[in-house]
Amino acid sequence: MKTNFQFLIIALLLLVASCGEKDELTAKKDDLAKMKKEASELRSSIEALEKEIAQLDPEFALANRKAVLISTIKPTVGQFDHFVEVTGSVLSKKNVSISGEVSGRIQEISAVEGMRVSKGQVLARVDAEAILRNIDEVQKQLELAVIIFEKQERLWNQQIGTEIQYLEAKNRKESLEKSLATLKTQESRTLVKAPFTGTVESVLVRTGELVQPGTPMFQFVGESDLFIEADVSERYVGIVNKGDSVEITFPSINQTMSTKVSAVGSIINQNNRTFKVEVFLQNMPLVKPNMISVLRIKDYESKEAVMVPNYLVLQDNKGDYIFKVEDNTSKKQYIKRGKTYREITEVLEGLTGQETLVDKGFREVGDNFMVNVAQ
Rank of each mutant, 00 (worst) to 15 (best):
Q158W: 13
T199N: 10
K242V: 13
A181G: 05
G222H: 06
S175F: 11
T199P: 01
P195Q: 03
N171K: 07
P251T: 06
V237L: 15
R172Q: 10
L204N: 01
G198R: 00
T162K: 05
K242S: 08
V240M: 06
Q219H: 14
Q219L: 12
E163C: 03
S224M: 08
R189W: 06
T190G: 10
T199S: 13
A230M: 04
V221Y: 02
S224I: 07
V192H: 02
F227M: 05
F220H: 01
K193T: 11
A194G: 05
V211C: 01
E229V: 15
A194T: 02
P213C: 11
Q159E: 14
F149R: 11
T190Y: 03
G198M: 00
Q158G: 10
E153D: 15
Q165T: 13
L210Q: 09
T182L: 06
V200F: 03
F218K: 05
N157D: 13
R172L: 10
T199M: 14
T197G: 12
S179M: 06
K170F: 13
V205T: 03
T207H: 03
V221K: 04
V211S: 01
K178C: 04
V221P: 01
E247Y: 07
E247F: 09
R172C: 02
V211I: 12
V200R: 00
G243E: 01
D231T: 12
P251S: 07
F250T: 11
V192W: 02
K242Y: 10
D244H: 09
V211T: 04
L226M: 01
T199I: 15
F218Q: 02
V200A: 02
E187F: 15
E201D: 13
E229D: 09
R235H: 14
V192Y: 02
E150F: 09
A230I: 06
V146A: 14
K151Q: 13
V192I: 15
Y236W: 13
I148C: 07
T249M: 12
I239N: 11
E153R: 14
Q165K: 10
V203G: 01
L204K: 03
